[in-house]
């Protein structure tokens, strides 16, 4: 019998993604009717890039959701802002230096994730609280290191994420696609991925089976931090400069995108492809709102209502009365 079982593409998985695909189509059509510029190559390319940044954040968030135990990572935005500001402080002139800087930002994010994971597993601090406090500490650290100065004058290599490879597809977009594909394959086809989902599904049972639940849970936060670190580096390359708290909104959006994509916040069930589609939905929505010149306040309200609606259709507690 073939192992792992060939079931990555079966009806149940597709059915979860269907609503997101439909919504993406609807939003594209809606945007196009509002303005022909919306579906221009340039605009779509830019949307795809922003979506790719969100995809990184969502992938990180998905890993933490999958690990169960009410896992959530609210420090993703802070880590992204940190590496966006601190990353360019390193020399990135040559490809070697660039590679080294990339590894460093990933390591910075991973360390934050490790601290999160340890606080959560060893000290039993609820993930929401731990990651929220960490985000405060990370902001403080960032402020301390950068002395409040924004990042400017970036190296050409870093700005290279904006380079067009195909029409509509820039380097950053390709990175995003690769990240999602890699994550999904790891989840379904490797032992590490399967272990993560099993542990998230029922940590007690997983422990009884002999799995190292604490190690896997902490590893999930380390991965999340590392990915967020990388994403921040990509963010500054895309934007051309960085300021404090620029990645704040990514945190909430990553939560929303993951849930839209069918991930269970209780753990054990999730899809990175779904998260990518969810990210696309949210960025399309944001662009349409921006195009309509809707003030920031109204945008927040719409985002919040959307998230609330998604939550109430997806993650409700059990009825008291059966």
């Amino acid at each position: 019998m073939e192992w792992p079982l060939k079931r990555t593409v079966n009806t149940k998985n597709i059915r979860v993604l269907l609503p997101s695909i439909v919504v993406v189509a609807v939003l594209l059509i809606f945007g196009a009717t509002l303005s022909g510029r919306f579906i221009s190559v340039r605009n779509l390319g830019s949307i795809l890039m922003t979506a790719s940044l969100l995809v990184f954040a969502t992938t990180a968030q998905n890993i933490v959701f999958l690990s169960g135990n009410n896992g959530i990572d609210l420090s993703i935005g802070a880590v992204m802002s940190m590496t966006a500001l601190v990353g360019p402080m390193m020399p990135i002139g040559t490809p070697v230096e660039f590679a080294f800087a990339t590894l460093t930002v990933i390591a910075m994010g991973a360390v934050c994730g490790l601290l999160n994971g340890l606080g959560i597993r060893v000290l039993s601090i609820p993930p929401l609280i731990m990651t929220l406090i960490m985000s405060n500490v990370i902001y403080g650290f960032t402020l301390f290191v950068t002395k409040g100065r924004p990042a400017m004058e970036l190296s050409k290599i870093l700005l290279g994420v904006n380079k067009t490879v195909f029409p509509m597809i820039r380097v950053l977009t390709i990175c995003g696609v690769v990240a999602v594909a890699a994550a999904e394959i790891i989840l379904r086809k490797t032992r590490a991925g399967r272990k993560l989902a099993i542990v998230g599904d029922n940590p007690n049972a997983a422990g009884l089976c002999g799995l190292r639940v604490s190690l896997i849970s902490v590893a999930a936060y380390v991965c999340s931090g590392g990915i967020a670190g990388f994403a921040g580096f990509m963010l500054v390359g895309y934007a051309g400069s960085a300021i404090m708290r620029m990645a704040d909104s990514y945190t909430l959006l990553s939560v929303a995108a993951a849930i839209i994509g069918g991930t269970s916040v209780a753990g054990g069930r999730g899809s990175f492809v779904g998260g990518a589609l969810g990210s696309l939905v949210l960025i399309l929505l944001t662009s349409i709102l921006q195009m309509l010149n809707i003030p920031q306040g109204a945008r927040f309200v719409i985002q919040g209502v959307l998230l609330a609606v998604i939550l109430l259709t997806n993650t409700r507690s059990e009825k008291l009365r059966q």
Binding site: R7, A197, I198, D201, N202, N204, A205, A206, L208, S264, G267, G268, R269
Partner: peptide, 9 residues
């Protein structure tokens, strides 16, 4: 609580 992985096949 200790046996079933309810999201899994």
């Amino acid at each position: 609580g200790e046996g079933v992985f309810k999201e899994h096949s």
